[in-house]
Structure formats: structure tokens, C-alpha cells
């Protein structure tokens, strides 16, 4: 998994790239969580993530819940069809902020 972060004011845009599985979830958390903990609105662009398993879904849930605690939000953008299918299988499409 690789990533790119850009910041514009209070918005941190994080582009993840690759496959998100148990092996990379700690790295994904290290990339995402500090921005949430700093109170930033996080735009998580998943257009280049073609595979995500339950571990990756857990990172999305944990990010969403941390953001609520910090009175901010995580917006998941440009999710690929294959990852959207997994999000829907977990019945999270109404819970997570998808754009």
C-alpha cells in the first residue's frame, strides 16, 4: 500500500493506493488517525484501492468513529466498485460518509 497526503486548510486528503488487508492496516491507521486526532476533516480517496478485506473495513469504521468523537468527519471518496461491494456487504453504506 502506498499513499499520498495533501492538506488544504482544515481538510486532509489522503489517497490510498493498492490492496488493503491485515498486513497493511497498521500502516493505514498511522497515515489516517493523526489527521483525525488533529481535528481535520479527512477525505479518504479510494479510487486506486481495488481490494479491501474485513481488516480494511475495520480501519474505515474506526476512522469514522474516531472522527465523530473529535466532532469532525471522514468522507470516503471515489470508492472503486469492488471496494464498494465489500462496504455494502458489511451494510455500511448508510453509516460511512460515501461520496
Amino acid at each position: 500500500m502506498s499513499y499520498k497526503v495533501t492538506e488544504d486548510g482544515n481538510i486532509a486528503t489522503i489517497h490510498l493506493d493498492g490492496e488493503i488487508d491485515m498486513d497493511v492496516t497498521e500502516k493505514a491507521k498511522e497515515v489516517i488517525f493523526p489527521h483525525i486526532e488533529a481535528g481535520k476533516e479527512v477525505h479518504l480517496n479510494l479510487s486506486n484501492v481495488q481490494y479491501m478485506d474485513s481488516s480494511g473495513i475495520s480501519v474505515l469504521i474506526e476512522s469514522h468513529q474516531k472522527a465523530l468523537e473529535k466532532n469532525t468527519k471522514v468522507i470516503i471518496k471515489d470508492v472503486s466498485k469492488s471496494v464498494l461491494k465489500v462496504i455494502m456487504m458489511a451494510k455500511l453504506e448508510q453509516i460511512l460518509n460515501l461520496e
Binding site: 478485506d53 474485513s54 473495513i57 475495520s58 469504521i61 465489500v86 458489511a90
Partner: peptide, 17 residues
Amino acid sequence: EIDNVKPGGLGTFFIQE
């Protein structure tokens, strides 16, 4: 429980689905 949204516990659900 799938409605009890929290991290973890989804792998077995996916397999069964």
C-alpha cells in the same frame, strides 16, 4: 451482530455470506 457497528468481527460474516 452486523447492526452493532464496530471494528472487527466481519471476516467470518463475509465468508458465510
